[in-house]
Amino acid sequence: MIDSKYYNYNLVNYLSQTDIELFQALKAGQPSALGILYDRYGKLVYGLSLRVLKNSQEAEDLTQEIFLNLWYRDNYNPTRGSLSSYLTILTRSRAIDKIRSRGTNLKFLERWGQNMSTQTSAHTPFEQAALKERSQCVRNALAQLPQHYRQVLEMAYYEGLSQSEIAKQLNIPLGTVKTWARQGLLKLKQPLQNLIN
């Protein structure tokens, strides 16, 4: 039989601990904190890894690497930004390094779509709601952007392309690419400000 007091305590604790508290618990050597952080951000890290790497096994490996990095290394500094942002920056940078080191001749796009996992979510309703709300908010903000702003922003972010590579691919001047990317980012600031505190 479930001890309801214990259950409620843990549930409240689970939902209310901030990322910083969890990170401190993690540094104090509590593996359960890593589990909770994984429940919060595992989907985000995996989704981003999959988007950049386009391979589910590599995305899985990178997700594991990112969370173990959080455990074994002390690189995150809470005064410099949110944990979520730290995780996405690290994941993106590692993923792009990996695709660059594959060489230039692989045709990644051919693999896209073949590796999408369709497993059902293991996330609790709370996490799903928080993630869904954020996702919806970011999607709405992106949907408000002029299409070309969004395109150059996403090419730079997910493909790791330089501005001159984007200019070449889209056959537009380099200055235009820079302006579109910058304006795209700036236009996202206002609708997303509630999410960046």
């Binding site: 595992g42 989907k43 995996y46 589910s56 173990l68 970011v138 600031k189």
Partner: peptide, 29 residues
């Protein structure tokens, strides 16, 4: 602005990682 940029992946299609990944990570530590 760095935080704003870091939010972009939230707009990606939600794909769940395989269930064994969580236990692999927690067990590893």
């Amino acid at each position: 602005l760095q935080e704003v940029l870091g939010l972009l992946p939230y707009a990606l299609p939600q794909v769940s990682p395989p269930q064994h990944l969580r236990s692999a990570i927690v067990e590893a530590v």
